[in-house]
């Protein structure tokens, strides 16, 4: 059974991830992203929204495929800043590596 964990989004705020809950998963970011076949970055933002902390950490290498080009942020209709969310997730994962 998978449980939703809203505290994960709060935990991420200190890494600059503060707009994940603004996203309504329309997929515009995924459509515009140069990584066209990866469901990226929508999948990662969904992990934040449902609090799938472990799932995110299991797939954390994918974050570094992001080119930080900013197209997703430029086109996001909710101004949820997906590019910054991915950068914040990288910070969270790096901090996690350094702690462990």
């Amino acid at each position: 059974m998978t449980l939703i964990n809203p505290e994960f989004a709060e935990e991420l705020e200190r890494f600059g991830v503060s707009t994940a809950l603004d996203c309504f998963n329309c997929g515009t970011c995924t459509a515009i992203c140069p990584l066209i076949y990866e469901h990226f970055p929508r999948k990662m933002i969904r992990y934040i929204q449902v609090g799938a902390r472990e799932l995110l950490l299991e797939n954390d290498n994918e974050l570094w495929r992001c080119l930080h080009c900013g197209l997703c942020t430029y086109t996001c209709p909710r101004e949820a800043d997906p590019g910054e969310l991915i950068l914040g997730l990288k910070r969270f994962v790096v901090a996690n590596w350094r702690r462990s």
Partner: peptide, 11 residues
Amino acid sequence: GILLYDLGDQE
């Protein structure tokens, strides 16, 4: 230091 920023090594 921009590459460290882009890679998420904020510290």
